[in-house]
């Protein structure tokens, strides 16, 4: 039993965090909703992302990737959440993993790994999971992406970004077919589908963990410096009690992420998926709760566009809804555990 990050994973977290912070500093949410910079990275930023190996991280070596473990990818994604990175790294990782699970040809995956082909995953209109076809689907975390593939291998161009709660990530509709970019895909085996699903849920847990911990840290910092009644507001018990419960949620979510990420590669697919659903259900609820508390702890300033508090809450709500919120996963788990004869 060895629970926690090894020295290499800690180094990966540190390096990823540094680049994530730098990317985030170049993105500007502007002065209001109509003034937000595009979530799409500049060519220079995308080149840095590719140079860091992020799109290639999880792809297998025969597909031009680095073959990283799910734990490593989770380490990266936590940092993306921590710094509210706008660039669509998670969308790219999810799309790449899906295409690999659907048996996409190596040259398609190599192009993704090399950053030359920028793809986004297609989700159903309820954002509950991968779309069965392009019809009515949504291209998720797709800023700057040029294509999205339906499970039948058809390539689709992407439309303009839709209005979204999350100002750091884009959702677009698939549009015209791009037939000369079609690729050959096959339906995944049940095991591959479960493992893919577990991996994707785990990434969302990682993004929620990064987002909620950033929100809590900033709220604590604010409560330490903001004074009322001649004292820092963080010295009041009512404020301390909220922040303490939030740290319990953050640490429990970290434990859930560690198990879920380990399980993706270490446990049989059905067990990995069950763990990931459990982690996603927990993180969805606790992540949003902590970000809501951060808004509260910031007080009036937390309700302004200028404060980052709403950015975290927007991102957490989007992570929560994407690939199923706590209610969706609890319903599945209830069926697994409570159906007669289960």
């Amino acid at each position: 039993m060895q629970i926690g990050l090894d020295p290499e994973q800690r180094a990966l977290g540190k390096a990823s965090g540094a680049l994530a912070a730098d990317l985030a500093s170049g993105w500007d949410r502007g002065r209001g909703p109509s003034d937000v910079a595009s979530a799409a990275p500049s060519d220079a930023d995308w080149a840095r992302i590719v140079e860091a190996g992020w799109p290639a991280l999880r792809l297998r070596e025969e597909n031009g990737g680095l073959g990283a473990a799910a734990v490593d990818v989770a380490v990266l994604v936590e940092q993306l959440g921590r710094h509210s990175v706008a660039a669509p790294v998670i969308g790219t990782l999810v799309a790449a993993e899906q295409l690999q699970a659907l048996g996409a040809p190596a040259e398609t995956l190599e192009a993704i790994a090399a950053g030359e082909l920028r793809v986004a995953p297609l989700l159903d209109a309820g954002l509950l999971g991968f779309a069965p076809s392009a019809e009515g689907a949504l291209a998720w975390d797709s800023a700057g992406a040029t294509l999205a593939y339906a499970p039948d291998g058809s390539a689709h161009a992407l439309g303009e970004p839709l209005p979204t709660a999350d100002v750091t990530r884009s959702v677009r509709r698939p549009g015209a077919r791009v037939t000369d970019r079609d690729t050959a895909l096959r339906p995944p085996a049940g095991d591959d589908r479960d493992r893919l699903h577990a991996f994707v849920l785990t990434l969302l847990v990682a993004d929620l963990l990064g987002t909620m911990s950033a929100a809590l840290d900033a709220a604590v910092e604010h409560a330490t410096t903001r004074t009322q009644f001649g004292r820092p507001i963080g010295s009041f018990q009512a404020v301390q009690q909220i922040a303490a419960e939030d740290l319990v949620s953050v640490e429990a979510t970290r434990s859930a992420l560690y198990f879920s990420a380990w399980a993706v590669d270490a446990l049989p697919p059905a067990e990995a998926l069950r763990a990931a659903r459990t982690a996603k259900a927990f993180a969805s609820r606790s992540g949003v709760a902590v970000c809501q508390d951060a808004v509260q702890l910031f007080g009036g300033i937390g309700m302004t566009w200028e404060s980052p508090a709403h950015v975290w809450l927007r991102r957490a709500q989007t992570d929560r809804t994407s690939f199923g919120d706590e209610h969706a996963h609890q319903a599945v788990l209830a069926d697994l555990d409570l159906a007669p004869g289960a």
Binding site: M1, I3, T253, A256, F259, A275, E326, H329, Q330, L333
Partner: peptide, 22 residues
């Protein structure tokens, strides 16, 4: 649904306890 929700929390607790012990 409430039973499923608390089962989620109990599972996360057991993972957290394992991590704390290590």
């Amino acid at each position: 649904r409430r039973l499923a929700a608390v089962a989620v929390d109990a599972q996360v607790l057991s993972w957290h306890v394992a991590r704390s012990l290590v």
